[in-house]
Design a protein around this nucleic acid. Structure first.
Length: 277
DNA sequence: CCCCAGTCCTGCGGGC
DNA sequence: TGCCCGCAGGACTGGG
């Protein structure tokens, strides 16, 4: 599932779309239910046609394409979405095709196996209202240790659950939350308001380390194989996972304990009962 | 404020 | 061998 490192990797791969002009916008003719797109396709197409893509950025787990008129295309891959320049894994799950002109990329593709992804076109006002700093917390790679602590320390929620709250801090998903807390040596069920300054420092440092390392390895390709760098190239960070999907296997840190799986907020959490207290 | 369960969706793997 | 069911979870919603 694309989280910060995977979305960052996709952003870097599709950087050539900057400077291109959008031609046609097409939905693929797959028999599958089509992904959510706002506004509806005909309106979306009319508003983006002829616009040049001025900039690309990542907002937490979303990709933002800023157009020269100030409108923004926001792509949320959610569980299985992929944003590519070419060679989608198959035709069946290809959902959306932006044809491009006048630059170094010919097209921009949105492929999504499960179809939970969302693509939106937002005016500057809509963007501020729906995805502004009031709604989306500071990016996990830009937040300072002080602000991280300040935003979460008042909460009685378990730290693992809090790290997934995009309103508090943006970019962390289920996989990296477990990896970060293991690296930090903090128990995932620990309430935020019981964590000491040294814990916050450890979490902040672990967060930077894990996310940057994952970006360097171009993200994690899981067993289902949906996330890829290109059709023929998986990410590599899955080989570095210390806890995620390793229940019953020995902890790579202490070597003694077995990794345990628990459920928090209806999601799997993996941790080492010895290294994380 | 926070929690929980339900919703969307497809493919996979376990059990029988 | 085939079929059913549960599971994966990001973001959101409604009820408590």
């Amino acid at each position: 599932m694309p989280e910060l490192p995977e979305v960052e990797t996709m952003c870097r791969r599709i950087a050539p779309v900057v400077g291109c002009r959008i031609g046609n916008l097409k939905r693929s003719s797959s028999p599958l239910q089509s992904i959510l797109i706002y506004p509806r396709l005909s309106v979306f197409r009319r508003r983006v046609k002829g616009q040049t893509i001025a900039a690309i950025s990542r907002l937490g787990k979303r990709v933002v394409l800023e157009l020269e008129n100030g409108e923004r295309i926001v792509i949320e891959p959610r569980m299985t979405g992929l944003i590519l320049l070419d060679n989608p894994p198959d035709r069946k799950h290809l959902r959306l095709i932006f044809e491009l002109e006048g630059g170094s990329a010919r097209q921009l593709l949105f492929w999504d196996q499960r179809g939970l992804g969302v693509v939106r076109l937002l005016s500057p006002g809509e963007f501020r209202k729906e995805l502004g700093p009031e709604r989306i917390g500071p990016d996990a790679l830009r937040i300072t240790p002080e602000i991280l602590r300040k935003r979460l320390v008042g909460s009685r929620r378990a730290i693992k659950v809090a790290l997934l709250d995009q309103h508090a801090i943006a970019g962390i998903g289920n996989l990296y939350a477990s990896e970060i807390l293991h690296r930090a040596g903090v128990h995932p069920a620990k309430p935020c308001n019981e964590l000491k300054p040294r814990h916050w420092a450890a979490i902040h440092a672990a967060m930077r380390k894990v996310l940057q390392e994952a970006i360097r390895h171009q993200g994690s390709t899981l067993r289902d194989g949906t996330y890829r760098v290109t059709r023929d190239e998986p990410g590599n960070y899955q080989d570095k996972h210390r806890v995620y999907q390793r229940a019953g296997k020995p902890c790579l840190q202490c070597g003694a304990a077995e990794i345990v799986r628990i459920v928090q907020a209806q999601r799997s959490t993996f941790f080492c009962p010895v290294c994380q207290r």
